[in-house]
Design a protein around this nucleic acid. Sequence first.
DNA 1: CGGCATCCCATTGGATACTG
DNA 2: CAGTATCCAATGGGATGCCG
Lengths: 122, 122
Amino acid sequence: MTVSLAQIRERSGEVFLEGCPTRVVLDHIMSKWGVLVLLALTDGTLRWGELRREVEGISEKMLASTLRTLEADGLVVRTSYPEVPPRVEYALTDLGRELMERMLPLVDWVAEHAGTITGRPA
Amino acid sequence: MTVSLAQIRERSGEVFLEGCPTRVVLDHIMSKWGVLVLLALTDGTLRWGELRREVEGISEKMLASTLRTLEADGLVVRTSYPEVPPRVEYALTDLGRELMERMLPLVDWVAEHAGTITGRPA
DNA sequence: CGGCATCCCATTGGATACTG
DNA sequence: CAGTATCCAATGGGATGCCG
């Protein structure tokens, strides 16, 4: 389970180079809203309106563009039901769930230490 | 090792609320340059100039502000030697190393899958 | 060498209004 | 309900120049 920097360099020797795919994906999932949306979807499928309420402070514009990016990355699926009124649901894909398995321990650690970290003298 | 969303909510029931400490710290470490700088420091102490070269594409301004943020968060230590010409070294703190233990598996996974992800049809 | 200060532009992102 | 479109404000971030 322990991973070294050397291993990462083997898989993606270019992490530190501009335009490398790893950087691009990291920018998507590590973005301010990306993490929160992925996190919200971790405990199950949500509708557009539910997501909007769950992720407090996100604007419609940002929710839309974040979802489109994550969907294009294959991390999230969008399912639209032909009903009136319209219903659209978002969920993690298998890839997305794999990702979140790695992301949750990190977020958990941050949640545990965030108080200490922001509480220290500037 | 497995972590549930419920656990995270317990530690920080506010992850989804604006202004919550967890959000702030996540913004620091998950920022475009934050990850890369932390990653670069993972295999050891680096001087300013080395960091600048290692993290390709970063400007002096961004390197400076990223380092100051991470230092204020207690994740990075800055050591200045009173020499001429000046020498300054940056390294992870214990807290920073703990963080990277959780971050590396994630980055490793992304490095492994980045090609597939960005390669899919829009 | 290791920065900080300044200027400036591009992109991000929010608020509002409107549509299928 | 689930978006899109538009406009505008804030910020991110690059280039340059100066200083210890």
